[in-house]
């Protein structure tokens, strides 16, 4: 389910967060699905349990997963979609720099919007 890139600049725990979110968005992981416990996931991915725990804590804080003691960790039944302003600002900045790069390669507004629209459709 999760494929880590150890050479990437993105920290391992962020890669886990991102990939679980991706699977939730694609509908591969439906609400209520049990996901492996911290220790089991660590074994599977060959990383330390602490790293998995960090990712799970963040996912739990964002309301994407829920842990019920004695039962395990699940994809949350109801994922509340609320914008985190700080995060939105950070993403806007990332968009900004990507748009500059695309413009420098000759993409115009229409092309850029189309590119993003296609990517968005691929994900849902």
């Amino acid at each position: 389910m999760i494929n880590l890139d150890f050479k990437s600049d993105t920290p391992i725990y962020e890669q886990i967060i991102e990939q679980i979110k991706y699977h939730v968005m694609k509908g591969n992981l439906e609400a209520g699905t049990i996901i492996p416990s911290v220790r089991k996931m660590a074994l599977e991915l060959s990383i330390t349990p602490g790293t998995v725990a960090k990712a799970y804590q963040e996912l739990e804080r964002q309301g994407i997963i829920e842990t019920i003691r004695g039962k395990g960790t699940f994809i949350a039944l109801k994922i509340e979609k609320k914008p985190d302003e700080e995060k939105v600002e950070q993403i806007s900045k990332e968009f900004q720099s990507k748009i500059i790069e695309l413009k420098m390669m000759g993409y115009d507004e229409e092309h850029i919007v189309e590119l993003i629209r296609n990517l968005y459709r691929e994900m849902s």
Binding site: R39, A42, L43, S46, I47, T48, P49, G50
Partner: peptide, 9 residues
């Protein structure tokens, strides 16, 4: 140590 890394806190 590869095994321990996966198991230990």
């Amino acid at each position: 140590l590869g095994d321990l890394e996966k198991l230990c806190d």
